[in-house]
Design a protein around this nucleic acid. Sequence first.
DNA 1: GGGGAAGATGAAAATGATATTCAAACAAAA
DNA 2: TTTTGTTTGAATATCATTTTCATCTTCCCC
Lengths: 145, 145
Amino acid sequence: MKSPQEVFADFLADRNLKTTPQRRLILDTLLKQNDHLSPEELYAKVKKRDKSIGQATVYRTLKLLNESGLIEPLDFADGVTRYEPSYGEEHHDHLICERCGKNIEILDTVIERRQEELAAEHGFTLLRHKMYLYGMCGECRKKKQ
Amino acid sequence: MKSPQEVFADFLADRNLKTTPQRRLILDTLLKQNDHLSPEELYAKVKKRDKSIGQATVYRTLKLLNESGLIEPLDFADGVTRYEPSYGEEHHDHLICERCGKNIEILDTVIERRQEELAAEHGFTLLRHKMYLYGMCGECRKKKQ
DNA sequence: GGGGAAGATGAAAATGATATTCAAACAAAA
DNA sequence: TTTTGTTTGAATATCATTTTCATCTTCCCC
Ligand SMILES: [Mn+2]
Ligand SMILES: [Mn+2]
Ligand SMILES: [Zn+2]
Ligand SMILES: [Zn+2]
């Protein structure tokens, strides 16, 4: 299996785009995290390693990384798009506490299978799906009263 | 069962907010549709009936209608939030053709149950969820080759 | 059926995330 | 190397949504 760096380099070459230190740095920073980073947060981290990098480059690179299949955009309903590395990772969905932001990765084969079946019942070929469960975690429920 | 109008009036009274012609008109316009309207689209429709209404009032009223449980925000990932009347309607999710935009409302009790169970297994109280299935419909698949 | 206080309104300005523009710097193919 | 197309950072623009503010309206008490 190719490394993410290789995948990205190949993707860029395919499109006649260039490999640059900024693009490498951004991918690298993203891979070091296994958090769900917003562009703003990623920009802060990247800036620590290269003081001169610009916000626009972070947004532009995230777009490319997404198109190359290396990362996945997430919507935790907090006003920003977050991203997670997805290359070589098993698909999963998310369970989110709307109070404290706690975020649990979930995967349920029953649900995944039914999604396929549902699509098929309507004559669709399922390409992808989004599923987010929003609720309140145990700790927050206790704190509440 | 109370009418949506009554529900809204009660909701407003409860919060010491006022019933106004603008708020009534917006709810009314929304109920006449069973489409998934964006604030912009709704504003255009409402404006035909009351030339003097402002955008801000539409946004403000959508927020209130959502809080009152009468409508539901949707995220079709096209850059705008859309809304659909949900009072007295059964909950459902959406199956979307990424090629032609066709949008089918789906509901699966197996999935809904597993969502609850999954949340509970992690100590969460499930408040809401988003599930969108993206694929290609039968017609688009045929047209493709 | 009038005050009058609390709320609501529309227009305009502000916000905040993301995208674009532009001139200068750079990558990489030849 | 040279050359050409691409990328960069800073600044500015965009676009959906929210806020501000001065004016108007609702509705509760007399
Ligand atoms: Mn995740
Ligand atoms: Mn559902
Ligand atoms: Zn929590
Ligand atoms: Zn289709």
